[in-house]
């Protein structure tokens, strides 16, 4: 039993690394850098999936650590992704039983609302602490994230049924 659980964690970890890599792959230098705002938050979606599917293995603490790793890898100040992911985890965990019952597109809609809310919070927090101008284009990211959610969900479910 303990071994199976450990193995499951290994497979979850692989997808987390995949999320980090997907978030980091540089766009070709010839395209405008603003296109980066259209990149879905792969890591957040992967995290949301595992929170939904196996809440006993993926908790708030795991979300916190994944957020810190994301901060290092994406070059953001410590706590930037951490805050986002901790709150996302709290939201998903508070109602994962209801969320599982919903259609995928309904989930996508809720993901959109949740991520949009968290992005606004992030903008406000960083706006208070940092003197950098943040572009409002960052509000587009939850939109593309919600659009790819069904695919992430189906792919990860197939993956989980096979391995985890």
């Amino acid at each position: 039993m303990a071994e199976a659980r450990f193995q499951g964690l290994g497979f979850i970890l692989i997808t987390v690394v995949l999320g980090l890599v997907l978030g980091l792959i540089p766009l070709p230098m010839s395209v405008p850098a603003e296109l980066n705002y259209l990149r879905p938050d792969w890591l957040g979606l992967i995290l949301a999936y595992w929170l939904l599917a196996t809440p006993e293995q993926m908790g708030v603490v795991a979300a916190f650590w994944i957020g810190l790793v994301a901060d290092i890898v994406f070059g953001a100040p410590f706590g930037f992704h951490g805050l986002n992911y901790v709150l996302l985890a709290a939201l998903v965990l508070s109602s994962y039983q209801q969320l599982r019952m919903l259609e995928i597109w309904q989930q996508a809609l809720l993901i959109l609302f949740a991520l949009e809310l968290l992005t606004v919070l992030q903008l406000v927090m960083v706006g208070v602490l940092d003197d950098r101008d943040q572009s409002w284009l960052i509000l587009l990211r939850p939109l593309t994230s919600a659009l790819v959610w069904p695919w992430v969900f189906l792919l990860l479910r197939a993956y989980r049924r096979r391995y985890v």
Binding site: V60, P77, G79, G82, L83, V86, L87, A90, M125, L129
Partner: peptide
Amino acid sequence: LAMVCLVLLF
């Protein structure tokens, strides 16, 4: 943990 993140951000 959210508090910790805020302190870290600051």
